[in-house]
Design a binder for these strands. Structure first.
Lengths: 223, 223
DNA sequence: GAAAAGTTTAAGAAATGTTAAAGACTTATT
DNA sequence: AATAAGTCTTTAACATTTCTTAAACTTTTC
């Protein structure tokens, strides 16, 4: 599902946008200040970000400049009618599109669709991170503290599964059915062996624990 | 210099846009009907195309559909204020952006700049290089350390695919559907054979490895 | 301390990749 | 139209890597 971050300090407008987009099937997250927005951008990957220019804390311009360093998510800038010159600058600076207040929700939706289409066309790789562990879905490479580690197919799949849900505890059944595209049939030792092998490869580089055992339940990324 | 095609039947508006953009240093060509527009698109490569929806001859929608087949030039659709639904469709259909009449020339310029920026970001170069390997998409020639190597069509397509995304690992399915313009049907040994043949041709010139096998996943250019 | 659950090692089984060669197919040439 | 040259696909034997299983060992829970 497409995840949208709405950075807008006016709670009414923020809520209205959220409601409208949620109805269309988007998953929405609201941020009410520039600093909060930046924080959320750093924590999670969004499909698209709606950014109001007038913000408390940090200005929209600054936010855009900062955000560009850490993500390539497309931005749609929202601003009042009288700031056209600023908007020209925004587009030049890096926003993907802009829209002026008051805006028609239909138009906003259309611009979101267009921006998402453009961004999917550009095809950007997914990069998952957890502590010092980085997984690049494009190159299928996993590196730890800068060192590339060679993982086998199953090991890779297990790590990808965990990195996509950093807090979730996975039962062996879940790991099996996800990484093997198959039903789970009794013998569960296989997964223990793979987990063990992953741990050993990680141990060669750092002593820090990356996979935690939850007794009787399964495994997850270590806190 | 950026070349702009303006497809707009109203001579006054067409002229006004042309004048404004020419002042900014764009080279403008005017077309006054859908058919003329399509003709010009076929004849010459434009950086961006401005398209009025209400056209004599052929509708803007139809034109867009036809044009998409022959070019990847971005379109900005221009239309009257009351056709918002149509515009939503336009964006979904393939337009890069839209703007409603009456519009501010400043805004039009900004949207042109944004569209050009996006398109330049997506643009692919004519000559792809990786280490000592050079592929010229124009002459369809591939050379290694200065020596031209004769590759067959399929070999060429596989190499082109890989050179366009130097880090990505390509599964056999991906290679197949890209180089064969066809769906993937089971038998996967074909690709292994082509990879093998490519490697042999490269080996005649250098011992350096250019294609790497990622077990269980596919192939990619060697680091 | 016994039972249950998890870890590790090692070896054989299974899956996947490589290469060479033959035949099928396509295209160019006479 | 026949021949020739080149290209693509399939087959099959072989090589390599990865996966699973089994067994011995360790840790946790009750």
């Amino acid at each position: 599902m497409e995840k949208v971050l709405i950075i807008e300090d006016d709670a009414d407008i923020n809520g209205m946008i959220k409601e409208a987009l949620s109805q269309e099937g988007y998953e929405c997250v609201s941020a009410y200040s520039g600093t909060e927005g930046l924080l959320r951008i750093g924590q999670e990957k969004y499909s698209i970000i709606l950014l109001d220019l007038m913000l408390p804390g940090i200005s929209g311009e600054e936010l855009l400049r900062e955000a560009e360093k850490i993500t390539n998510t497309p931005f749609i800038v929202i601003s009042a009618k009288d700031e056209l010159d600023t908007k020209v600058d925004m587009l030049t600076l890096g926003a993907d599109d802009y829209i002026t207040k008051p805006f028609d929700l239909k138009e906003l939706k259309a611009r979101i669709i267009a921006a998402l289409r453009r961004s999917s066309r550009a095809e950007t790789p997914d990069i998952l991170k957890y502590k010092e562990l980085t997984l690049d879905t494009d190159s299928h490479e996993i590196s730890l503290e800068g060192h590339v580690i060679q993982f086998t197919l199953q090991e890779y799949k297990i790590l990808e599964l965990m990195l996509r849900n950093p807090n979730k505890v996975f039962s062996k059944q879940e790991i099996y059915s996800c990484a093997w595209d198959d039903y789970y049939i009794g013998e569960d030792k296989t997964i223990n062996v793979h987990i063990s092998n992953i741990r050993q490869k990680i141990k060669k580089i750092t002593d820090e624990e990356y996979i935690e055992t939850i007794w009787g339940i399964g495994f997850r990324l270590a806190k």
